[in-house]
Design a protein around this nucleic acid. Structure first.
Lengths: 207, 207
DNA sequence: GCCGAAGGTGAGCGCTCGCTTAGTAAGGCC
DNA sequence: GGCCTTACTAAGCGAGCGCTCACCTTCGGC
């Protein structure tokens, strides 16, 4: 796993798949604005302005402001799921896979805090159909983590009272990093990832 | 500690200190609306409507929409601090005090989810002065929890690598309950409180 | 050198927002 | 009964919102 080379203003490399260039610039501008002020407090004029364009230019590439949030949410959740899948499906003990999953997931939330904040906390601003689609991705994230914990319990590595509840708590802990993590604070994303991996292993009765 | 007699729509008894009656009704209406749609997506017309009043009536009791959020935030944070103080200052081992703090704090977030959601997640919608005031209260909450953990480490009850980081993780875990807890879900606030107290004791190296 | 598509702009429409103002109804006090 | 205070409403102001439309510019293909 790479170190956290991302900063609050420079998470752009994650959006490489979005084309053309103007559409990507608008998307990145929207991520920054949504993260700073929230979806409803962000104006389309602000997004276009950050991308160096006129307010009308936004509507050449996106039908509505909500479509921007939908696109950001889907790409972000797909990335989150990919991170958890990679850790879950590697070889190794349940302990190693869980530590890997937590530390890389936390690193993503801390290092890409701008993106993660939008992805994790602006879900309710989507309409019913879009929200349902995203919630399906989120359930898959839950499944990956629960799978690792179940494996650990079955192998006798972990000692867990309530698998479903513990899964939820582990994910909740990781996700909430996006709320409190501060780039100017005392920790790097790597440090928080390592600390949290240790805490989670304790939660599942390991160590 | 009492059981959770609160429901999503009936957390009214917590606002008994707000007078006169019309001001309290408006405040409760605002809590419900902010929790459902977020501060920026809520209109003053909606708040007044829920309280059974005309849009203008709001401005007899509150100078601005932001003052409503400020008042809700302050009262809510004072309640949260009181819960943590009560648990922190009771007699007993650090283990007992920490379990008490976590279970009652979690119960408040789960049972009073409507209120807790506004209190914990709409902080950024406040202006700089109001936010600074609330952040001071929040720092006091941190101090209470860190105090218990430090006591436990000093007494040899706990085994903690990073006291500051663990404190943050414990509070983060509790606060995030307000985001995911669902009244119609499989758990009662009491059950989540008990589960989380167990998980936190594991995090600090107890049990 | 001309043309049409692709990608942009300036102006502005219709609407809803937070908030204000003028007026009204009810109740306590003398 | 007269009068002030308190609590409220109907109407609406100015501003800013999401979004549209008529028009302009650039550029590859022939």
């Amino acid at each position: 796993m790479g170190t956290a080379e991302e900063t609050a203003g420079g998470e752009a490399q994650a959006w490489g798949e979005v084309t053309p260039d103007a559409a990507r610039r608008l998307l990145i501008a929207a991520v920054e604005a949504f993260a700073e002020r929230g979806y409803h407090a962000t104006t389309t004029r602000d997004i276009a302005g950050r991308a160096g364009m006129s307010p009308a230019a936004l509507y050449i590439h996106y039908k509505t402001k909500e479509e921007l949030l939908h696109r950001i949410s889907r790409i972000g959740h797909e990335k989150a799921l990919e991170i958890l899948r990679t850790a879950s499906r590697r070889e190794g003990t349940a302990r190693e896979r869980l530590a890997d999953a937590v530390s890389s997931f936390v690193r993503w939330h801390a290092g890409g805090r701008t993106t993660a904040r939008v992805v994790q906390y602006e879900l309710d601003s989507l309409g019913p159909d879009a929200r349902a689609e995203i919630l399906a991705l989120r359930r898959q994230c839950d499944d990956e983590v629960r799978g690792i914990i179940e494996d650990g319990v079955a192998a006798g590595e972990f000692d867990v009272l309530d698998v479903k509840g513990t899964t939820l708590a582990v994910l909740s802990l990781c996700i909430d990093v996006a709320r409190w993590f501060n780039v100017d604070g005392p920790w790097t994303p790597d440090e928080v990832g390592a600390l949290y991996a240790d805490l989670v292993l304790r939660m599942v009765g390991e160590k």
